[in-house]
């Protein structure tokens, strides 16, 4: 029966509908509403375990997401850090970091919280996050800073740096400084031109850390400790300022 024929039919009204049929229609309506309403409520419920797991998955690149032949990264076992700053000193010496004008390549941040008259001190090591989507590289007008095609490390070509400081403004991690000796912007480069160039396997800061807070290595190499730590099931791993979309290669965990 097509619609034109149906239109010619006389309207029966709802008075002649059997009670059973009305009930079934209402039930179907309730069920449909329930499915949508239930779905909405579920989607608003916070499932912390699931979301943590999800975040961890998002922070750590999975197989096939490493664009560089060697993809260097670092994981910080944050709760092990005691703030001795041997890493900072080793970095300064290895990389000839000047002492003035806020120059540092790595630092230890400290947070003191008080709860019921107990003081809690936390330390957090920071350095350049060697991001996969580095804001500093994008903003540089002269390509003075770029991703090393072999290692993914963000490096500087000092002679091209005009000193506009846009990379400093763009960095979410305050990882860049003005190097008065080079008269250019400088930054941590995972010791690529010092220790890695000499064939050493660790950065100066990682090698100097007595608590083995900093684990440096190739994220692609399944035999490395960083790979094992990053892929330990159920461990909570986070990155700093994930909201900026910079996709950092420095990860944090408590272990």
């Amino acid at each position: 029966m097509n619609i034109e024929d149906l239109e010619k039919e006389k309207n029966e009204g709802i008075g002649s509908l059997p009670l059973q049929e009305r009930r079934e229609f209402l039930k179907m309506g309730l069920a449909l509403t329930g499915v949508f309403l239930g779905g909405s409520i579920l989607s608003m419920t916070s499932i912390s375990h699931a979301s943590n797991q999800k975040n961890a998955d998002m922070d750590i690149p999975s197989e096939g997401q490493y664009p560089y032949p060697k993809h260097y990264g670092m994981i910080m076992r944050q709760n092990r850090c005691v703030g001795c700053e041997l890493c900072v000193e080793a970095c300064k010496q290895s990389n000839h970091v000047p002492n003035d004008h806020g120059a540092w390549r790595t630092a230890i941040q400290e947070k003191i919280t008080r709860e019921n008259s107990t003081e809690k001190r936390e330390f957090r090591p920071v350095l350049c996050n060697q991001c996969n989507r580095p804001p500093c590289v994008r903003v540089c007008p002269t390509k003075a800073t770029y991703k090393d095609p072999e290692t993914g490390i963000v490096v500087m070509d000092y002679k091209k740096c005009i000193g506009c400081k846009t990379c400093m403004a763009a960095c979410p991690y305050n990882a860049r400084y003005f190097n008065e000796e080079k008269y250019a912007i400088d930054k941590c480069n995972f010791c690529i031109d010092t220790r890695l160039a000499e064939g050493k396997k660790e950065t100066a800061c990682a090698a100097a850390c007595p608590a083995r807070v900093r684990i440096f290595g190739d994220l692609k190499d399944k035999s490395t400790e960083i790979y094992r730590l990053l892929h330990t099931p159920d461990s909570k791993i986070w990155v700093l300022r994930p909201d900026t979309g910079a996709l950092p290669n420095v990860f944090y965990m408590n272990a």
Partner: peptide, 23 residues
């Protein structure tokens, strides 16, 4: 304001970054 404008004159031309707003 720029620390090394002389480098800008050269490298803005021979090493431009088309993704850079500053450029």
């Amino acid at each position: 304001e720029i620390a090394s404008p002389h480098r800008m004159l050269l490298y803005n031309i021979i090493s431009p970054n088309p993704l850079s707003n500053i450029w």
